[in-house]
Design a protein around this nucleic acid. Structure first.
Lengths: 207, 207
DNA sequence: GATCGTTTTGCAGTCACTGCAACTTTGCAG
DNA sequence: CTGCAAAGTTGCAGTGACTGCAAAACGATC
C-alpha cells in the first residue's frame, strides 16, 4: 500500500495537523489568544502537548497555520510563468493564486483568525518571523527570473513588499470584510508596483 | 532641583536602560542570543531580573533597544516639514534622520547587533512586532499630510514599506557593511518610491 | 507475525515573563 | 534636617511555552 497518492500515515498526519490548527484558531477566537494554553489546544485536538510541538514550532505558528509547502509551491509557480511575464507580475500572480486557493480551502478558518488578529495585530507580524526560509526561496526565484545576482536588493525587497501588502490587506479586511481579501492584497501590490512617491488623491468612495 | 532638563531620577533611569540594552547586545553577540539568559543580562547590568522587565517587555525588545520615543519623534518630524514636501518625502527624510542620529549615538552597539542579526534574522522581524503603536502613529501622521481618510491604505502601506526597507537594508548591511546603513535604507525606499513593477537591469558593479 | 522505521507520548527540566507586596530611593516642603 | 509621598527596585511564587530524551505505540513491509 504505497500509492504515491497518500498512505494512511500521511493522511493521519494531515488530519492531526489540521485538527491542531483548527483547535488553535477556534479556541483563540472564542476566548482570546492568551487565555488559551497549548495544553487545552492539544486536548481539543486529542493529542499530547508534545505532539503539538512536533507539528508546530510555536503557538503563533499554529494560529497562522503556516504551511511549510507554501513557499516551495509559490517559488515553483513563479518560475513556471512564461518568459514574457515580468518578475513582478509573476510574483504578484503567484501570491494571489496562493491566497485565493487558501481562502477556498479554509475560508471559515480565516474568518475566525480575523477575530483574533483584530485583537492582536502583532501576531500577524510574528507569524512572518518564522518564514525567513520561505522568503529566501521566493526571493531566489524572483532573482532568477530577473537575471539579477544573488546580492541584489530587488528580489528581497519585492518579497518583503509582498509580506507588507499581505499584512496591510489582512488588517484592513479584519476591520471591514466587504471587499475580498484577494482584492485588497492585489490593490496593495499594485501600489507597490506603481510606486509610493505620489500619494493618491482623495475622492469620495475611493479606497 | 527640577530643571526641565533632567532630574537625578531620570538620569539614573536612562543609565539603567542603556546598561541593560548594552549588556543584552554585548552578551548576545559574544555567546549567541539564546545562550544568554535574562538573569545573566540583569547581573551584567547590576540590577534584578524583575527590573529588566520593568524596562523592556521582552528579551527581544532589549536586544533591539526599542526606543519608545522614536515613534512620536518621527511623527512630529513628518508633520513639521513644509507643506510643499510630499508625504513620501517627509516620511523618507524622517526615517533617514532617525537612523542617522541613532547610528551617530550608538554605532558600536549596531556593529554588535549586526553579529546577532546575522545568526538570527528573525529577531529583526520580531522586533517590529512590538511597535504596532508606533506604526499607527506614523501612519496617522502620513495620512494627515496626504489629506487622506483614516481608512485609506496608503499611509499604512508606506509605513509598512519603511519597515520592509529597513529590514532589507540591515540584512544587506549585515553581510557587507562597506556601504553605510543609511545609504542602503535610502536606496530601498527609493525603489519603493518609483515602483517595483519593473525589475532593475543588471550591470556590473550595480547594487 | 517479526521486524524496521516513524510517530506519539510522558517526564523532567529550563527559561521568559507576570502580579504582588515589601522595601529603598528620590523629590520636595515645612 | 525631617517627614512624607511618589517613583523605582527587588524577591518571590507562579504560570506556561518550549526542549531533549527514552520508552511505547503504531504503520509499512516481507
Amino acid at each position: 500500500m504505497n500509492q504515491p497518492g497518500e498512505s494512511l500515515r500521511d493522511r493521519k498526519k494531515r488530519r492531526t495537523r489540521a485538527a491542531l490548527e483548527r483547535a488553535t484558531v477556534r479556541l483563540a477566537a472564542e476566548r482570546g489568544y492568551d487565555h488559551v494554553t497549548v495544553e487545552e489546544i492539544a486536548a481539543e485536538a486529542d493529542v499530547s502537548v508534545r505532539t503539538f510541538f512536533n507539528y508546530f514550532a510555536s503557538k503563533d505558528e499554529a494560529l497562522i497555520g503556516a504551511d511549510p509547502e507554501a513557499g516551495p509551491r509559490m517559488a515553483e509557480r513563479i518560475l513556471a510563468f512564461p518568459g514574457t511575464t515580468t518578475p513582478f507580475e509573476a510574483y504578484r500572480s503567484s501570491v494571489l493564486a496562493e491566497i485565493t486557493e487558501e481562502l477556498d480551502n479554509a475560508r471559515d478558518l480565516w474568518l475566525l483568525r480575523k477575530e483574533v488578529l483584530m485583537q492582536r495585530p502583532d501576531l500577524l507580524v510574528r507569524a512572518f518571523a518564522n518564514s525567513a526560509e520561505s522568503e529566501q526561496l521566493l526571493a531566489d526565484a524572483v532573482g532568477r527570473r530577473a537575471g539579477l545576482p544573488r546580492s541584489h536588493v530587488y528580489p528581497r525587497l519585492l518579497v518583503a513588499a509582498g509580506s507588507a501588502a499581505f499584512r496591510c490587506a489582512v488588517t484592513r479586511w479584519a476591520s471591514d470584510d466587504s471587499v475580498a481579501l484577494g482584492e485588497l492584497v492585489s490593490e496593495a501590490l499594485d501600489l507597490f508596483g506603481t510606486g509610493l512617491a505620489h500619494a493618491p488623491r482623495h475622492h469620495e468612495g475611493g479606497s
